Amino acid sequence: MPSPAKIAIIVAGGSGSRMGSTTPKQFLELNGKPVLHYTIRAFMEAYEDMHIVLVVPPAHRGSIGAVLAAFGRPPSVTIAEGGETRFHSVKNGLQFVKQDAVVFVHDGVRPLVSPALIRTCYEQALLKGSAIPAIPLKDSIREVDTVGNNAADRTRFRIIQTPQTFLSGLLIPAFDQPYDPLFTDEATVVERSGHAVHLVEGEEQNIKITRPQDLVIASAFLNDSLR
């Protein structure tokens, strides 16, 4: 029986508002290349037969050419149009999944994801239907309500990362549901459709670039990996 296709839906629809920049953060320079370059490269290095669906707003389609031009071997890429919310953007990307596949949904501004984590997610999705990277909390946390606040047991919680990875037979039907503002990621959508989601160990360096200091941290991680 042939292996399912490998398709990465990379959501690159963010703006530069929190970065204090007019350039969307996925196109900002990180050690001489756009942030999005490193994100795509990780998936290409994980599997040679990976197909990438880039979800970008129409206004930013013209920037994709420069990102892809930095590759010696052009990756297999399809461009999908970004939607009003993450839910709608991912749903647009899923329109290009035409066969049985393991589908990775990844933030375009998580450029430090490792090929090893991508491979782990693939293998676990084949076994369990889904694989959601997660890391423990390090800081103390408190639960806040209208009355006050209370200490919470941080060992009961996890920080969720991407790529959130699923068999297409689970993910695509889940996105037939009506949109709900509580759908903050793909795991919540699949869970709402009646399926349990399975966590795998994430990576501390798999950070999301949202503020200027994140670029400094990402640069340090990249420099350290070259030593």
Rank of each mutant, 00 (worst) to 15 (best):
S3M: 05
P136K: 10
L68D: 05
I217M: 04
K91N: 12
R61W: 04
D185H: 03
K6Y: 02
P181M: 08
A125D: 07
T210W: 04
Q26L: 02
N149R: 09
V77A: 04
T188Y: 01
V102I: 15
S219L: 05
K6S: 03
F175D: 00
L182R: 13
A134N: 05
Q161F: 03
G169C: 04
S21E: 14
G83M: 08
K6W: 00
L112V: 13
G108H: 00
V197Q: 09
T120P: 00
D153W: 05
A5C: 12
E204H: 08
D185V: 01
L215T: 09
Q161A: 05
Y179V: 02
L182P: 00
G129T: 08
R154A: 04
A218R: 05
L36I: 10
L30M: 04
K33G: 01
L127K: 12
K98Y: 02
A151T: 13
V102C: 00
A134C: 12
M1D: 15
V55R: 06
P58A: 12
E201F: 00
H106I: 10
A131I: 07
P24H: 07
S130F: 14
R158S: 08
F183H: 12
P111V: 07
T188G: 01
R119D: 11
A5E: 15
P181L: 06
E29T: 10
S63Q: 14
D139S: 07
E191A: 11
L68Y: 10
L137H: 07
R41H: 15
P173R: 05
N92H: 13
E81R: 03
F87M: 09
I172Q: 14
E186D: 05
Q213A: 06
H198A: 00
